[in-house]
């Protein structure tokens, strides 16, 4: 049951991720990216990590992708998208070779990896729940956690700086 669900989700993820790159209309790309995030959340639920699944939806699908969609909707008012983008044959060949090389590198890297098994006796099925995640974050990984929050604060201050009104500038 859960194995067939995994294969369904995995193929859906790959299909949607491909459609993000392939689709001509940027708004469609963003919508496919949102579906991709949903399928990834589905994987998290299969792994019994409900908290990660919910946070993935809230942060990525609910907040960041809304801003993406926001910007792209303003960019694309119907005229530009109809124009065909001219790509020279040389850059197509270069792109194919570069992509193929990346593919080869990834296959070479993944070829010799072994699937990390788990010990059924010591395995804790509750490891992905909120409580255990919170305990780990506030004990073992306290310093990285706090450093990440400082990083966010710096980013926030920077965003406010960039968005601040200059003197003499009027928005409303």
């Amino acid at each position: 049951m859960s194995e067939s669900l995994f294969f369904f989700l995995a193929s859906l993820t790959l299909l949607c991720a491909l459609m993000v790159v392939i689709s001509k209309n940027p708004v469609h790309s963003v919508l496919f990216l949102i579906i991709t995030f949903f399928t990834i959340s589905g994987h998290y639920i299969l792994l019994n990590a409900q908290f990660l699944a919910a946070v993935n939806i809230i942060v990525y699908a609910g907040a960041i992708m809304v801003l993406f969609l926001f910007v792209i909707m303003f960019l694309n008012m119907g005229k530009e998208s109809e124009k065909e983008v001219k790509t020279s044959t040389l850059s197509k060949i270069a792109g194919t070779i570069a992509g193929g090389l990346l593919f080869v590198v990834m296959i070479a890297a993944l070829k010799d990896t072994e699937i990390a098994g788990y010990n059924a006796e010591t395995y804790d099925s509750q490891i992905g729940m909120v409580e255990s995640l919170g305990v780990v974050l506030f004990t073992e990984y306290l310093l990285p956690f706090e450093l990440a929050s400082v990083l966010f604060l710096v980013a926030m201050v920077g965003a406010v700086m960039l968005g601040k009104k200059e003197s003499g500038e009027q928005h409303f």
């Binding site: 809230i58 699908a61 809304v66 909707m73």
Partner: peptide, 20 residues
Amino acid sequence: VNIGVLYIFGVVSLGVYGLM
């Protein structure tokens, strides 16, 4: 689910897609 509040919050944050 043991993340009921987050579930509600996630679903609410998706509501904006219908409008957009």
